[in-house]
Design a protein around this nucleic acid. Structure first.
Lengths: 220, 220
DNA sequence: GACAGACTACCGACCGCTCGGTTGGTGCGG
DNA sequence: CCGCACCAACCGAGCGGTCGGTAGTCTGTC
């Protein structure tokens, strides 16, 4: 399910991904996501791969070299994914929905890489978060702000501050890894769709100045 | 500014907080928040406190004993804080606003403890996240769901699923530590207030079936 | 077909270092 | 003289990373 080779850009060029390398990425990716970069030793990764630690160093010069492409690939790919699905000719409301839902779709597909990259970014901002990675992240956030701004300009949205509104939206999505259960009844894109509904319509039921004839959209 | 003694419950009983213990908590708390539990050594904490590592072990039996009260205190105190400011006789919309803003107020005051506790909870769910701590966290989330449910029952809110809506709200708040700048122009409670406005009113500007006479709340 | 050499995948054993934690003590106020 | 606050020195374990070597495979050459 996790096409990590695609995320890492290993299948596009002439190189052969070598199988073992993909396996190491997959194992390390999940372990980093579950126990953190510092909480995973090279011995742990080697053991689960069924190889010796020395063999691990045959494929990767050091520990950082395993994490870096994962974090970089996740950050870059998430932007490319939502940008590919964006269409500036659509109404801003539809673009916003796509942005949110496609982000969740990406998260569903590359959950471990997402988490590993996100926590790596958080725990060691100066060493591992290099310029290029921040640049992709900025493009991602900027796309969201552009969508929000387009909605404000066209009169579809009435946010006053696109930065604040953008962080509102991103917070709802980025917090998902903390509670999302892949085995649950709702998949991530479905939840994201509901989030989008609530964010657009608001939680308040009725206009404050006008009485409602019927209970707006009764639950039962 | 950080009344850590209060958060840890060290000033209520007859014990003398001893000064040094408070200092260790403060230093460790900030370091844990900034570099993670595994990223901070006992030598680091001792060095910044200006004492030897052995003295650290004079006050605490092990490393976990420094983090545990911090994480526990933060989780418990955040619930007690919002519960103290809640008033079930108020309209649900006002209660929701208080919940969000007071959470941000708490975050502003105990930022390091909040982050340290949150990341500890996340990185090692089974070992350090003990039953009691989860219980307080559940009470906190349950209070939010109760407020949302009360709003739905009274017709103020039209959320269909309080669990999903609750996670929407919590995500916006809980993501704040990742980008919040204490030196910025807006303080956390102010940002939280704006979040609450957006969450209640929604980002969409006008009802889809009716034309608006004026540009809703123009930005300039 | 045999053989040398280069190369790949792999490993056991080891290195220096830092970690959390311990031990045996010192100085000092009450 | 006791107990508190404190510390230098130390310990075993685990860390990231290195080293020398082995088994197999592919290639070119006689």
């Amino acid at each position: 399910m996790d096409d990590l080779a695609g995320l890492l850009g290993l299948d596009g060029n002439g190189e052969v991904p070598s199988g073992r390398i993909i396996q190491i990425y997959e194992v390390a990716c999940r372990q980093f996501a579950q126990r953190g970069f510092d909480g995973v030793s090279m011995r742990d990764i080697a053991a689960e791969c069924g190889i010796s630690k020395a063999t691990l160093y045959h494929y990767f010069p050091d520990k950082d070299s395993i994490l870096r492409p994962l974090a970089m690939g996740a950050t870059k790919s998430i932007y490319l994914h939502v940008a590919r699905h964006d269409d500036a000719t659509l109404p801003a409301v539809d673009r916003l929905r796509r942005f949110i839902v496609e982000t969740a779709t990406f998260f569903e597909a590359f959950r471990w890489a997402w988490i590993a990259g996100s926590t790596a970014f958080w725990s060691d901002p100066e060493a591992r978060a290099r310029k290029e990675r921040i640049a992709w992240r900025d493009r991602y956030e900027q796309l969201l702000r552009d969508i929000l701004q387009a909605g404000i300009d066209s009169g579809e949205l009435h946010a006053t501050d696109v930065k604040i509104a953008g962080r509102l939206v991103l917070g709802t999505i980025n917090w998902m890894p903390r509670w999302y259960n892949p085995a649950g009844p709702l998949k991530a894109p479905e939840i994201a769709g509901q989030f989008c509904d609530m964010l657009l319509a608001g939680l308040r039921a009725a206009p404050p100045k006008k009485a409602v004839g019927r209970k707006a959209k009764a639950k039962g």
